[in-house]
Nucleic acid binder design. Sequence first.
DNA 1: CTGTTAGCGCCTTCAT
DNA 2: ATGAAGGCGCTAACAG
Lengths: 333, 333
Amino acid sequence: MATMIDIAKEAGVSLSTVSYALSGKRPISSATRDRIERAVAKLEYHPTASARALALQRTSLLGLAVPQRPDIDNHVIMDFVGSILTAAHEQDYEVVLVTAEDRERTLRIVEEGKVDALMVMDIVEDDDRIPALARLPRPVVLIGNPQDAGGLACVDFDFMAGAMLAVRELHRRGCTRIGMLKPPSAGPEGPVPTYARRARLGYTMACAELGIEHRILEVPPETEAISALVREELVEKQSVDALFVHHEPALAMLGRALLAHGVGCPDDLQVVALAPTDAAMSGPWELSSVDLPVPAIGRTGVAMALDRVASPDLPAHSRLLSPSFTPRATTRG
Amino acid sequence: MATMIDIAKEAGVSLSTVSYALSGKRPISSATRDRIERAVAKLEYHPTASARALALQRTSLLGLAVPQRPDIDNHVIMDFVGSILTAAHEQDYEVVLVTAEDRERTLRIVEEGKVDALMVMDIVEDDDRIPALARLPRPVVLIGNPQDAGGLACVDFDFMAGAMLAVRELHRRGCTRIGMLKPPSAGPEGPVPTYARRARLGYTMACAELGIEHRILEVPPETEAISALVREELVEKQSVDALFVHHEPALAMLGRALLAHGVGCPDDLQVVALAPTDAAMSGPWELSSVDLPVPAIGRTGVAMALDRVASPDLPAHSRLLSPSFTPRATTRG
DNA sequence: CTGTTAGCGCCTTCAT
DNA sequence: ATGAAGGCGCTAACAG
């Protein structure tokens, strides 16, 4: 592998001249610059990343801790990863993936300076990683919005505002018995994703604000469970006239169950989902939805992380992306 | 950040003693080792990755080029990534992700020595990245098995053997009109994943070997298309008595379509899928299947890559993982 | 068993 | 506009 010294010799100039010519950090006569570029091409020179990193104290590597728990939706994870990759690449950063379950390693890559900053996905309430993360000597950005972020930067969708928006849009369309459909809360004291509480809170608050009853329906994503729920709650008891659905894996099944049970949508029941656009658009219907902006979250997180690399003592703050509602086929008007 | 020099001072020994104590590459009296460990703990010392990388000419980073095309199944990609992550971590390697579409960057991370080796997913027939990849000064492993690998190492499932196995198992169970269900081949001269040709070839070869007709059914993954195909081919024409399905996104729909059209399985029709275990087990039925061993492919690829980091001139070779058949609810006997 | 020293390849402050 | 030289933090001969 050719080094700068080789280039310097080949071009008949000094080492530092080569360095400056390549970085452009100081004016170089077009004559010598030319000879240098020729030498670079001839010797197929490429700067060595680790040497540069050592000298600059900067790796151009961004760490990303991704969850690998089997109960988590790989599809959404990959959407996040993709958007983060793209955003990082745009700033000439590479992304180092580590499994979030391997906490030692996650901490280690930043302690050893393998990465300039770290992003952590799948933050849960009372996440016990936060204290350790907060002690790290480099910027850390949480994807999620725990009640106590321990002084770390956070980015997430504003689930509370999103849920409220969904309820208001349904109410405005004449619904007065608006149910919320969600997955069962995890077991006794299992970890709770930070968005679960916030979405639920937004839903109940909006109902309170509008003076209507709230009714939370928890259902596992299995076909039979959903079908049963549709029959009982919608066909027999008719307990609701609208559904706010924060339960991606159940969306497709719900659509089919409604069809099968002859529940007309939006005539008998209006539905608003809280989901990524592609999830709302796939499946058997086109769902009116409050969009979960996965790519924007990823981009924002990268921006926050790299901003802090540039200015290490920006104040901690959490950035919550505002919701927007897109009416489609499952709401009236 | 404390450096080794700080540790040396604090422990009252020389720099190299610290280095050797930490690496264990030379015997150290337990006395001094003790003082060193104490100093390390006290100063919270962590080795600096870029310095070590520069000295060792080794980064402990493995590059992975992942496809980001929208027409590709994120779920499977993430399964691959997960298994590669795990395997790499077991060898104390980290994984750097780059989007495969960004070819310049993919080449660059290895030219600049940011990674010790590179794995490339989503290899297609006549992949025009291969020549450039083959020139790289570090090990490259292709995930996929193109006809011309240009001297690069490859790893993949043996799709040809897998397809043949599926056909034989169906034939052994009395089927004589075995169709193959697959997605439409990409447009006129679109890139073809390497497995498409090989699976198809295995299927036709097995049929020839058994002296039965072959019949390839291509269908897009849309509900209607699948439903229509079931009606026409299975209900009306009854053109086949068994289906070899290499078409993951269609699996769930196929199951429902058969149910809806009253095609009994395995009584009227036997089905063997070529798919990852979880795909075969989810959905409305438990499919008999030739297992697509995603985790094993990932692990093997990592092993091949790191073997070549250790011994840079291992001969190029392609490793094809052998198929195995798991009878479940969609075959007889 | 422990020290001394010369790099690894690049960046950058001085000096010219 | 160009050179010379020291340093980033760690490793590994080479000497005891």
